[in-house]
Design a binder for these strands. Sequence first.
DNA 1: CGGAAAGTTGACGCGGGTCAAGGAATGTGG
DNA 2: CCACATTCCTTGACCCGCGTCAACTTTCCG
Lengths: 248, 248
Amino acid sequence: MSAKSETLKIADIQASCGSCSLSELCLPHGMAVADIDALDQIIKRVQPYQPRQHIFRAGDPCNALFAVRSGALKSYCTTEDGDEQVLGFTLPGELVGLDGLHSGIYASSSIVLETASICELPYDRLEELCHSISGLNRQMMRVVSKEITTDQRMLLLLGKRTAEERLAAFLLSLSSRYQSRGLSATAFNLPMSRQDIGNYLGLAIETVSRLFAHFQKDGLVTVNRRQIELVGIGRLRAMVEGCMGHEI
Amino acid sequence: MSAKSETLKIADIQASCGSCSLSELCLPHGMAVADIDALDQIIKRVQPYQPRQHIFRAGDPCNALFAVRSGALKSYCTTEDGDEQVLGFTLPGELVGLDGLHSGIYASSSIVLETASICELPYDRLEELCHSISGLNRQMMRVVSKEITTDQRMLLLLGKRTAEERLAAFLLSLSSRYQSRGLSATAFNLPMSRQDIGNYLGLAIETVSRLFAHFQKDGLVTVNRRQIELVGIGRLRAMVEGCMGHEI
DNA sequence: CGGAAAGTTGACGCGGGTCAAGGAATGTGG
DNA sequence: CCACATTCCTTGACCCGCGTCAACTTTCCG
Protein backbone atom coordinates (compact mmCIF):
# COMPACT_ATOMS: atom_id res chain seq x y z
CA MET A 1 0.00 0.00 0.00
CA SER A 2 1.46 3.34 -1.04
CA ALA A 3 1.93 6.16 1.40
CA LYS A 4 -0.34 8.31 -0.68
CA SER A 5 -3.32 6.02 -0.69
CA GLU A 6 -2.83 5.50 3.02
CA THR A 7 -2.98 9.25 3.53
CA LEU A 8 -6.09 9.57 1.46
CA LYS A 9 -7.75 6.82 3.36
CA ILE A 10 -7.04 8.53 6.66
CA ALA A 11 -8.33 11.83 5.33
CA ASP A 12 -11.48 10.07 4.19
CA ILE A 13 -12.08 8.53 7.58
CA GLN A 14 -11.49 11.89 9.19
CA ALA A 15 -14.15 13.42 7.00
CA SER A 16 -17.31 11.80 8.27
CA CYS A 17 -19.00 9.92 11.04
CA GLY A 18 -20.54 7.60 8.48
CA SER A 19 -17.21 6.15 7.51
CA CYS A 20 -15.61 6.30 10.94
CA SER A 21 -14.47 2.92 12.06
CA LEU A 22 -15.55 3.78 15.58
CA SER A 23 -19.17 4.59 14.80
CA GLU A 24 -20.20 1.35 16.41
CA LEU A 25 -18.93 2.71 19.71
CA CYS A 26 -19.73 6.38 19.33
CA LEU A 27 -22.91 8.43 19.20
CA PRO A 28 -23.96 7.37 15.67
CA HIS A 29 -24.50 3.84 16.89
CA GLY A 30 -27.89 2.71 15.64
CA MET A 31 -28.67 5.92 13.76
CA ALA A 32 -29.98 6.20 10.21
CA VAL A 33 -27.60 7.35 7.47
CA ALA A 34 -29.40 10.66 6.96
CA ASP A 35 -29.24 11.36 10.67
CA ILE A 36 -25.58 10.55 10.82
CA ASP A 37 -25.01 13.10 8.09
CA ALA A 38 -26.85 15.70 10.16
CA LEU A 39 -24.68 14.85 13.14
CA ASP A 40 -21.69 15.01 10.87
CA GLN A 41 -22.47 18.60 9.93
CA ILE A 42 -22.13 19.99 13.41
CA ILE A 43 -18.88 18.30 14.31
CA LYS A 44 -15.76 20.39 14.46
CA ARG A 45 -12.61 18.49 13.69
CA VAL A 46 -9.45 19.89 15.09
CA GLN A 47 -5.78 19.26 14.54
CA PRO A 48 -4.47 16.32 16.55
CA TYR A 49 -3.77 17.17 20.14
CA GLN A 50 -0.26 16.53 21.41
CA PRO A 51 0.69 14.82 24.69
CA ARG A 52 0.37 17.05 27.77
CA GLN A 53 -2.11 19.30 25.94
CA HIS A 54 -5.40 19.92 27.71
CA ILE A 55 -8.73 19.31 25.95
CA PHE A 56 -10.36 21.31 28.71
CA ARG A 57 -9.74 22.09 32.36
CA ALA A 58 -11.95 21.89 35.40
CA GLY A 59 -13.65 25.25 35.73
CA ASP A 60 -13.75 25.99 32.00
CA PRO A 61 -17.19 26.72 30.59
CA CYS A 62 -18.63 23.59 29.02
CA ASN A 63 -19.71 24.19 25.45
CA ALA A 64 -18.95 20.84 23.90
CA LEU A 65 -18.43 17.15 24.30
CA PHE A 66 -15.40 15.49 22.76
CA ALA A 67 -15.20 12.15 21.03
CA VAL A 68 -11.80 10.51 20.85
CA ARG A 69 -10.97 8.94 17.49
CA SER A 70 -7.43 7.88 18.28
CA GLY A 71 -4.89 8.31 21.05
CA ALA A 72 -5.66 8.38 24.75
CA LEU A 73 -6.76 10.91 27.34
CA LYS A 74 -6.67 11.12 31.10
CA SER A 75 -9.47 12.67 33.13
CA TYR A 76 -8.59 14.04 36.53
CA CYS A 77 -9.48 16.62 39.07
CA THR A 78 -7.39 18.35 41.68
CA THR A 79 -8.09 19.00 45.32
CA GLU A 80 -7.66 22.39 46.89
CA ASP A 81 -4.38 21.38 48.42
CA GLY A 82 -3.08 20.54 45.01
CA ASP A 83 -3.02 16.81 44.64
CA GLU A 84 -4.57 15.00 41.78
CA GLN A 85 -7.23 12.31 41.48
CA VAL A 86 -7.26 10.43 38.21
CA LEU A 87 -10.88 9.74 37.29
CA GLY A 88 -10.37 7.64 34.22
CA PHE A 89 -8.78 7.13 30.86
CA THR A 90 -10.47 7.77 27.54
CA LEU A 91 -9.77 5.48 24.61
CA PRO A 92 -10.92 5.75 20.98
CA GLY A 93 -14.70 5.64 20.62
CA GLU A 94 -15.31 7.16 24.03
CA LEU A 95 -16.65 10.59 24.98
CA VAL A 96 -15.39 13.11 27.53
CA GLY A 97 -16.95 16.23 28.91
CA LEU A 98 -20.20 14.74 30.14
CA ASP A 99 -19.62 15.98 33.65
CA GLY A 100 -19.83 19.56 32.47
CA LEU A 101 -23.48 19.44 31.47
CA HIS A 102 -24.71 19.80 35.01
CA SER A 103 -23.45 23.25 35.82
CA GLY A 104 -22.20 24.33 32.41
CA ILE A 105 -18.68 24.15 33.80
CA TYR A 106 -16.39 21.17 33.47
CA ALA A 107 -15.93 19.45 36.80
CA SER A 108 -12.81 17.62 35.67
CA SER A 109 -9.86 18.23 33.40
CA SER A 110 -8.92 16.18 30.38
CA ILE A 111 -5.34 15.90 29.22
CA VAL A 112 -3.74 14.05 26.32
CA LEU A 113 -1.55 11.05 27.09
CA GLU A 114 -0.97 9.85 23.53
CA THR A 115 -1.34 12.07 20.46
CA ALA A 116 -5.05 12.15 19.85
CA SER A 117 -7.44 13.11 17.07
CA ILE A 118 -10.66 14.35 18.50
CA CYS A 119 -14.12 15.36 17.28
CA GLU A 120 -15.66 18.32 19.04
CA LEU A 121 -19.44 18.23 19.47
CA PRO A 122 -20.83 21.68 20.33
CA TYR A 123 -23.43 21.01 22.94
CA ASP A 124 -26.07 23.51 21.86
CA ARG A 125 -26.01 22.16 18.31
CA LEU A 126 -26.17 18.64 19.67
CA GLU A 127 -29.16 19.58 21.75
CA GLU A 128 -30.99 21.02 18.75
CA LEU A 129 -30.25 17.84 16.88
CA CYS A 130 -31.77 15.79 19.65
CA HIS A 131 -35.13 17.32 18.79
CA SER A 132 -34.99 16.40 15.13
CA ILE A 133 -33.38 13.00 15.49
CA SER A 134 -35.37 10.76 17.75
CA GLY A 135 -32.68 8.17 18.31
CA LEU A 136 -29.95 10.62 19.22
CA ASN A 137 -31.55 11.63 22.45
CA ARG A 138 -31.79 8.08 23.63
CA GLN A 139 -28.31 7.28 22.41
CA MET A 140 -26.88 10.19 24.36
CA MET A 141 -28.70 9.07 27.48
CA ARG A 142 -27.21 5.64 26.94
CA VAL A 143 -23.72 7.03 26.75
CA VAL A 144 -24.18 9.15 29.85
CA SER A 145 -25.80 6.30 31.70
CA LYS A 146 -22.90 4.06 30.78
CA GLU A 147 -20.54 6.57 32.31
CA ILE A 148 -22.48 6.29 35.56
CA THR A 149 -22.32 2.52 35.49
CA THR A 150 -18.59 2.64 34.87
CA ASP A 151 -18.02 5.02 37.74
CA GLN A 152 -20.10 2.84 40.03
CA ARG A 153 -18.07 -0.19 39.10
CA MET A 154 -14.99 1.80 40.08
CA LEU A 155 -16.58 2.61 43.42
CA LEU A 156 -16.93 -1.08 44.06
CA LEU A 157 -13.32 -1.66 43.11
CA LEU A 158 -11.94 1.11 45.30
CA GLY A 159 -14.20 0.35 48.21
CA LYS A 160 -13.75 -3.36 48.55
CA ARG A 161 -10.91 -4.82 46.55
CA THR A 162 -7.29 -5.56 47.33
CA ALA A 163 -4.43 -4.02 45.39
CA GLU A 164 -4.04 -7.23 43.35
CA GLU A 165 -7.68 -7.34 42.36
CA ARG A 166 -7.68 -3.68 41.43
CA LEU A 167 -4.74 -3.97 39.09
CA ALA A 168 -6.07 -7.17 37.53
CA ALA A 169 -9.46 -5.55 36.96
CA PHE A 170 -7.77 -2.51 35.48
CA LEU A 171 -5.76 -4.58 33.01
CA LEU A 172 -8.82 -6.58 32.00
CA SER A 173 -10.80 -3.40 31.49
CA LEU A 174 -8.15 -2.06 29.13
CA SER A 175 -8.01 -5.43 27.43
CA SER A 176 -11.71 -5.60 26.66
CA ARG A 177 -11.81 -1.98 25.56
CA TYR A 178 -8.95 -2.50 23.13
CA GLN A 179 -10.54 -5.68 21.90
CA SER A 180 -13.84 -3.98 21.15
CA ARG A 181 -11.86 -1.51 19.04
CA GLY A 182 -10.46 -4.35 16.97
CA LEU A 183 -7.09 -4.46 18.68
CA SER A 184 -5.40 -7.25 20.55
CA ALA A 185 -6.96 -8.20 23.86
CA THR A 186 -3.72 -9.58 25.21
CA ALA A 187 -0.92 -7.33 23.99
CA PHE A 188 -1.04 -3.57 24.09
CA ASN A 189 0.69 -0.45 25.29
CA LEU A 190 -0.26 1.24 28.51
CA PRO A 191 -0.85 4.86 27.54
CA MET A 192 -0.41 6.02 31.13
CA SER A 193 2.42 6.12 33.68
CA ARG A 194 2.64 3.97 36.80
CA GLN A 195 1.88 7.17 38.67
CA ASP A 196 -1.41 7.53 36.84
CA ILE A 197 -2.32 3.88 37.31
CA GLY A 198 -1.63 4.05 41.02
CA ASN A 199 -3.49 7.29 41.41
CA TYR A 200 -6.48 5.92 39.51
CA LEU A 201 -6.60 2.71 41.52
CA GLY A 202 -5.98 4.34 44.87
CA LEU A 203 -2.56 2.68 45.24
CA ALA A 204 0.96 3.93 45.78
CA ILE A 205 3.15 3.90 42.71
CA GLU A 206 5.50 1.46 44.40
CA THR A 207 2.64 -0.95 44.98
CA VAL A 208 1.78 -0.87 41.30
CA SER A 209 5.38 -1.52 40.39
CA ARG A 210 5.64 -4.42 42.83
CA LEU A 211 2.38 -5.91 41.60
CA PHE A 212 3.57 -5.86 38.01
CA ALA A 213 6.66 -7.70 39.20
CA HIS A 214 4.58 -10.28 41.08
CA PHE A 215 2.21 -10.75 38.16
CA GLN A 216 5.20 -11.31 35.91
CA LYS A 217 6.81 -13.78 38.29
CA ASP A 218 3.54 -15.70 38.48
CA GLY A 219 3.30 -15.85 34.70
CA LEU A 220 0.21 -13.69 34.50
CA VAL A 221 1.72 -10.94 32.39
CA THR A 222 4.88 -9.88 30.64
CA VAL A 223 5.70 -6.24 31.20
CA ASN A 224 8.44 -4.05 29.87
CA ARG A 225 7.90 -0.44 30.76
CA ARG A 226 4.62 0.36 29.07
CA GLN A 227 4.39 -2.68 26.86
CA ILE A 228 2.31 -5.37 28.39
CA GLU A 229 1.12 -8.80 27.38
CA LEU A 230 -1.55 -10.62 29.33
CA VAL A 231 -0.06 -14.10 29.14
CA GLY A 232 -2.37 -15.65 31.68
CA ILE A 233 -5.51 -13.69 30.93
CA GLY A 234 -7.65 -16.57 32.13
CA ARG A 235 -6.03 -16.55 35.53
CA LEU A 236 -6.32 -12.77 35.65
CA ARG A 237 -10.02 -13.17 35.05
CA ALA A 238 -10.20 -15.74 37.82
CA MET A 239 -8.65 -13.20 40.19
CA VAL A 240 -11.44 -10.68 39.71
CA GLU A 241 -14.17 -13.24 39.21
CA GLY A 242 -16.78 -13.06 41.87
CA CYS A 243 -15.68 -9.61 42.87
CA MET A 244 -17.24 -7.75 40.00
CA GLY A 245 -20.84 -6.89 39.36
CA HIS A 246 -23.12 -9.36 37.62
CA GLU A 247 -23.78 -7.77 34.23
CA ILE A 248 -20.50 -6.89 32.65
CA MET B 1 -54.31 22.67 62.80
CA SER B 2 -56.93 19.95 62.41
CA ALA B 3 -56.11 16.47 61.28
CA LYS B 4 -58.45 16.88 58.36
CA SER B 5 -56.87 19.98 56.88
CA GLU B 6 -53.46 18.38 57.33
CA THR B 7 -54.64 15.39 55.32
CA LEU B 8 -56.01 17.57 52.59
CA LYS B 9 -52.82 19.49 52.42
CA ILE B 10 -50.77 16.36 51.98
CA ALA B 11 -53.16 15.09 49.31
CA ASP B 12 -52.78 18.38 47.52
CA ILE B 13 -49.04 18.23 47.53
CA GLN B 14 -49.19 14.65 46.32
CA ALA B 15 -51.35 15.71 43.43
CA SER B 16 -48.98 17.76 41.32
CA CYS B 17 -45.41 18.65 40.54
CA GLY B 18 -46.40 22.31 40.47
CA SER B 19 -47.16 22.40 44.15
CA CYS B 20 -44.46 19.96 45.25
CA SER B 21 -42.15 21.52 47.75
CA LEU B 22 -39.26 19.73 46.12
CA SER B 23 -39.73 21.09 42.62
CA GLU B 24 -36.67 23.25 43.08
CA LEU B 25 -34.59 20.10 43.29
CA CYS B 26 -36.44 17.81 40.93
CA LEU B 27 -36.93 17.74 37.19
CA PRO B 28 -39.42 20.64 37.02
CA HIS B 29 -36.69 23.05 38.10
CA GLY B 30 -36.76 25.99 35.73
CA MET B 31 -39.69 24.73 33.68
CA ALA B 32 -42.74 26.76 32.64
CA VAL B 33 -46.05 26.10 34.41
CA ALA B 34 -47.67 24.59 31.34
CA ASP B 35 -44.72 22.25 30.87
CA ILE B 36 -44.82 21.17 34.48
CA ASP B 37 -48.46 20.24 33.97
CA ALA B 38 -47.49 18.10 31.00
CA LEU B 39 -44.83 16.38 33.09
CA ASP B 40 -47.38 16.02 35.81
CA GLN B 41 -49.65 14.05 33.52
CA ILE B 42 -47.26 11.20 32.92
CA ILE B 43 -46.24 10.65 36.51
CA LYS B 44 -47.54 7.61 38.27
CA ARG B 45 -47.88 8.02 42.00
CA VAL B 46 -47.80 4.90 44.03
CA GLN B 47 -48.57 4.00 47.60
CA PRO B 48 -45.71 4.72 49.97
CA TYR B 49 -43.02 2.09 49.96
CA GLN B 50 -42.18 0.42 53.24
CA PRO B 51 -38.67 -0.20 54.63
CA ARG B 52 -36.90 -3.21 53.07
CA GLN B 53 -39.10 -2.99 49.98
CA HIS B 54 -37.29 -2.81 46.65
CA ILE B 55 -38.04 -0.05 44.15
CA PHE B 56 -36.23 -2.15 41.56
CA ARG B 57 -33.46 -4.71 41.48
CA ALA B 58 -30.31 -5.00 39.39
CA GLY B 59 -31.25 -6.98 36.31
CA ASP B 60 -34.85 -5.76 36.14
CA PRO B 61 -35.87 -4.13 32.87
CA CYS B 62 -35.63 -0.37 33.19
CA ASN B 63 -38.88 1.33 32.22
CA ALA B 64 -38.88 4.26 34.54
CA LEU B 65 -36.98 6.67 36.71
CA PHE B 66 -38.10 7.30 40.26
CA ALA B 67 -38.19 10.59 42.13
CA VAL B 68 -38.15 10.42 45.90
CA ARG B 69 -40.59 12.82 47.61
CA SER B 70 -39.98 11.71 51.17
CA GLY B 71 -38.12 8.95 53.00
CA ALA B 72 -34.75 7.52 52.02
CA LEU B 73 -33.41 4.86 49.67
CA LYS B 74 -30.19 2.92 49.38
CA SER B 75 -28.65 2.02 46.03
CA TYR B 76 -26.39 -0.99 45.92
CA CYS B 77 -25.15 -3.76 43.74
CA THR B 78 -23.93 -7.22 44.59
CA THR B 79 -20.89 -9.11 43.42
CA GLU B 80 -21.07 -12.62 42.11
CA ASP B 81 -19.81 -14.00 45.38
CA GLY B 82 -22.66 -12.32 47.14
CA ASP B 83 -21.34 -9.34 48.97
CA GLU B 84 -22.83 -5.93 48.61
CA GLN B 85 -21.47 -2.58 47.55
CA VAL B 86 -23.52 0.41 48.64
CA LEU B 87 -23.45 2.97 45.84
CA GLY B 88 -25.33 5.77 47.50
CA PHE B 89 -28.31 7.02 49.39
CA THR B 90 -31.26 8.83 47.85
CA LEU B 91 -32.93 11.63 49.74
CA PRO B 92 -36.08 13.63 48.88
CA GLY B 93 -35.75 15.54 45.64
CA GLU B 94 -33.32 13.07 44.13
CA LEU B 95 -33.77 10.60 41.28
CA VAL B 96 -32.85 6.93 41.04
CA GLY B 97 -32.75 4.57 38.10
CA LEU B 98 -30.49 6.60 35.84
CA ASP B 99 -28.01 3.77 35.51
CA GLY B 100 -30.63 1.65 33.76
CA LEU B 101 -30.87 3.81 30.66
CA HIS B 102 -27.69 2.46 29.16
CA SER B 103 -28.72 -1.12 28.60
CA GLY B 104 -32.41 -0.91 29.46
CA ILE B 105 -31.67 -2.98 32.53
CA TYR B 106 -31.01 -1.57 35.96
CA ALA B 107 -27.37 -2.00 36.91
CA SER B 108 -28.07 -1.47 40.59
CA SER B 109 -30.81 -2.19 43.09
CA SER B 110 -32.71 0.37 45.10
CA ILE B 111 -34.19 -0.46 48.47
CA VAL B 112 -36.18 1.59 50.96
CA LEU B 113 -34.52 2.57 54.24
CA GLU B 114 -37.23 4.88 55.56
CA THR B 115 -40.87 4.76 54.44
CA ALA B 116 -40.86 6.64 51.16
CA SER B 117 -43.34 8.25 48.83
CA ILE B 118 -42.11 8.06 45.30
CA CYS B 119 -43.06 9.39 41.87
CA GLU B 120 -42.60 7.00 38.98
CA LEU B 121 -41.56 8.55 35.66
CA PRO B 122 -42.12 6.12 32.76
CA TYR B 123 -39.10 6.58 30.59
CA ASP B 124 -40.73 6.34 27.18
CA ARG B 125 -43.28 8.99 28.11
CA LEU B 126 -40.51 11.12 29.52
CA GLU B 127 -38.59 10.77 26.29
CA GLU B 128 -41.59 11.86 24.24
CA LEU B 129 -41.96 14.83 26.51
CA CYS B 130 -38.36 15.80 25.92
CA HIS B 131 -39.25 16.51 22.31
CA SER B 132 -42.10 18.86 23.13
CA ILE B 133 -40.55 20.59 26.09
CA SER B 134 -37.25 22.14 25.20
CA GLY B 135 -36.05 22.66 28.74
CA LEU B 136 -36.75 19.15 29.95
CA ASN B 137 -34.08 17.59 27.84
CA ARG B 138 -31.43 19.87 29.18
CA GLN B 139 -32.72 19.50 32.71
CA MET B 140 -32.51 15.73 32.48
CA MET B 141 -28.98 15.93 31.17
CA ARG B 142 -28.18 18.18 34.11
CA VAL B 143 -29.51 15.64 36.54
CA VAL B 144 -27.63 12.78 34.94
CA SER B 145 -24.48 14.82 34.71
CA LYS B 146 -24.76 15.68 38.35
CA GLU B 147 -24.89 12.00 39.15
CA ILE B 148 -21.59 11.56 37.33
CA THR B 149 -20.00 14.42 39.23
CA THR B 150 -21.21 12.96 42.50
CA ASP B 151 -19.81 9.54 41.69
CA GLN B 152 -16.50 11.07 40.70
CA ARG B 153 -16.30 12.94 43.98
CA MET B 154 -16.82 9.59 45.69
CA LEU B 155 -13.97 8.12 43.67
CA LEU B 156 -11.71 10.81 45.03
CA LEU B 157 -12.89 10.11 48.54
CA LEU B 158 -12.38 6.36 48.31
CA GLY B 159 -9.11 6.58 46.46
CA LYS B 160 -7.24 9.07 48.56
CA ARG B 161 -8.82 9.87 51.86
CA THR B 162 -8.37 8.49 55.36
CA ALA B 163 -11.21 6.95 57.30
CA GLU B 164 -11.67 10.18 59.29
CA GLU B 165 -11.91 12.33 56.20
CA ARG B 166 -14.36 9.93 54.57
CA LEU B 167 -16.76 9.95 57.48
CA ALA B 168 -16.50 13.71 57.90
CA ALA B 169 -17.20 14.24 54.20
CA PHE B 170 -20.12 11.84 54.41
CA LEU B 171 -21.70 13.68 57.32
CA LEU B 172 -21.22 17.04 55.63
CA SER B 173 -22.76 15.71 52.44
CA LEU B 174 -25.86 14.60 54.33
CA SER B 175 -25.90 17.91 56.16
CA SER B 176 -25.92 20.03 53.04
CA ARG B 177 -28.47 17.82 51.34
CA TYR B 178 -30.83 18.08 54.29
CA GLN B 179 -30.27 21.79 54.46
CA SER B 180 -31.16 22.31 50.82
CA ARG B 181 -34.42 20.50 51.59
CA GLY B 182 -35.23 23.00 54.28
CA LEU B 183 -34.19 20.81 57.19
CA SER B 184 -31.57 21.34 59.82
CA ALA B 185 -27.99 21.23 58.64
CA THR B 186 -26.68 20.24 62.05
CA ALA B 187 -29.20 17.83 63.56
CA PHE B 188 -30.78 14.95 61.70
CA ASN B 189 -31.37 11.24 61.69
CA LEU B 190 -29.12 8.87 59.83
CA PRO B 191 -31.49 6.80 57.71
CA MET B 192 -28.90 4.04 57.28
CA SER B 193 -27.15 1.54 59.52
CA ARG B 194 -23.47 1.65 60.47
CA GLN B 195 -23.11 -1.34 58.19
CA ASP B 196 -24.36 0.69 55.24
CA ILE B 197 -22.18 3.68 56.08
CA GLY B 198 -19.09 1.53 56.34
CA ASN B 199 -19.89 -0.32 53.17
CA TYR B 200 -20.49 2.94 51.32
CA LEU B 201 -17.27 4.52 52.55
CA GLY B 202 -15.12 1.45 52.08
CA LEU B 203 -14.61 1.02 55.82
CA ALA B 204 -15.24 -1.77 58.31
CA ILE B 205 -18.29 -1.28 60.47
CA GLU B 206 -16.06 -1.24 63.56
CA THR B 207 -14.05 1.61 62.11
CA VAL B 208 -17.20 3.66 61.59
CA SER B 209 -18.26 2.99 65.15
CA ARG B 210 -14.86 3.96 66.53
CA LEU B 211 -14.79 7.12 64.45
CA PHE B 212 -18.17 8.22 65.76
CA ALA B 213 -16.79 7.71 69.26
CA HIS B 214 -13.66 9.73 68.45
CA PHE B 215 -15.65 12.51 66.82
CA GLN B 216 -17.86 12.65 69.87
CA LYS B 217 -14.92 12.73 72.28
CA ASP B 218 -13.39 15.56 70.26
CA GLY B 219 -16.62 17.55 70.40
CA LEU B 220 -17.27 17.35 66.69
CA VAL B 221 -20.59 15.53 66.92
CA THR B 222 -23.11 14.12 69.36
CA VAL B 223 -24.36 10.71 68.35
CA ASN B 224 -26.95 8.44 69.85
CA ARG B 225 -27.71 5.50 67.66
CA ARG B 226 -29.01 7.12 64.50
CA GLN B 227 -29.58 10.59 65.88
CA ILE B 228 -26.68 12.86 65.16
CA GLU B 229 -25.89 16.48 65.78
CA LEU B 230 -22.94 18.16 64.13
CA VAL B 231 -21.81 20.26 67.06
CA GLY B 232 -18.51 21.29 65.54
CA ILE B 233 -19.54 21.52 61.92
CA GLY B 234 -16.87 24.13 61.29
CA ARG B 235 -14.13 21.82 62.44
CA LEU B 236 -15.66 19.01 60.42
CA ARG B 237 -15.41 21.23 57.38
CA ALA B 238 -11.82 21.98 58.22
CA MET B 239 -11.09 18.25 58.21
CA VAL B 240 -12.20 17.79 54.63
CA GLU B 241 -11.07 21.19 53.45
CA GLY B 242 -8.37 20.93 50.89
CA CYS B 243 -9.20 17.35 50.19
CA MET B 244 -12.31 17.96 48.15
CA GLY B 245 -12.66 19.19 44.60
CA HIS B 246 -12.75 22.89 43.88
CA GLU B 247 -16.32 23.55 42.82
CA ILE B 248 -18.63 22.21 45.46
C1' DC C 1 26.64 14.32 27.94
C1' DG C 2 23.90 15.90 31.97
C1' DG C 3 19.65 16.52 34.34
C1' DA C 4 15.02 15.16 34.95
C1' DA C 5 11.42 11.98 34.89
C1' DA C 6 9.99 7.27 35.24
C1' DG C 7 10.38 2.91 37.17
C1' DT C 8 12.20 -0.68 40.46
C1' DT C 9 13.31 -2.68 44.85
C1' DG C 10 14.03 -3.10 49.88
C1' DA C 11 13.11 -1.84 54.81
C1' DC C 12 9.93 -0.23 58.08
C1' DG C 13 5.71 1.20 60.41
C1' DC C 14 0.94 2.52 60.82
C1' DG C 15 -4.02 2.74 59.61
C1' DG C 16 -7.52 0.21 59.58
C1' DG C 17 -9.22 -4.75 58.80
C1' DT C 18 -10.32 -8.94 61.39
C1' DC C 19 -11.60 -11.55 65.28
C1' DA C 20 -13.89 -11.84 69.54
C1' DA C 21 -16.91 -10.57 73.32
C1' DG C 22 -20.43 -8.02 75.19
C1' DG C 23 -24.12 -4.31 75.59
C1' DA C 24 -28.34 -1.97 74.04
C1' DA C 25 -32.49 -1.67 71.40
C1' DT C 26 -36.24 -4.02 69.06
C1' DG C 27 -39.15 -7.79 68.01
C1' DT C 28 -41.81 -12.19 69.16
C1' DG C 29 -44.28 -15.54 71.29
C1' DG C 30 -46.16 -17.23 75.56
C1' DC D 1 -45.83 -8.80 81.57
C1' DC D 2 -41.52 -11.47 80.96
C1' DA D 3 -38.16 -14.70 78.51
C1' DC D 4 -35.64 -15.08 74.59
C1' DA D 5 -33.89 -14.24 70.02
C1' DT D 6 -32.23 -11.09 66.77
C1' DT D 7 -30.30 -7.16 65.03
C1' DC D 8 -27.52 -3.25 65.71
C1' DC D 9 -23.85 -1.12 67.81
C1' DT D 10 -19.64 -0.66 70.64
C1' DT D 11 -15.06 -1.66 72.37
C1' DG D 12 -10.62 -4.07 72.86
C1' DA D 13 -6.63 -6.91 71.11
C1' DC D 14 -4.03 -8.28 67.37
C1' DC D 15 -1.76 -8.05 63.00
C1' DC D 16 -1.13 -7.54 58.00
C1' DG D 17 -1.51 -5.02 53.56
C1' DC D 18 0.02 -1.34 51.73
C1' DG D 19 1.83 3.49 52.25
C1' DT D 20 6.09 5.93 53.15
C1' DC D 21 10.91 6.74 52.89
C1' DA D 22 15.11 5.93 50.67
C1' DA D 23 18.48 4.40 47.33
C1' DC D 24 19.30 3.06 42.86
C1' DT D 25 18.70 2.13 37.78
C1' DT D 26 16.90 3.11 33.37
C1' DT D 27 14.95 5.95 29.96
C1' DC D 28 14.07 10.23 27.95
C1' DC D 29 15.25 14.65 25.95
C1' DG D 30 17.58 18.86 25.09
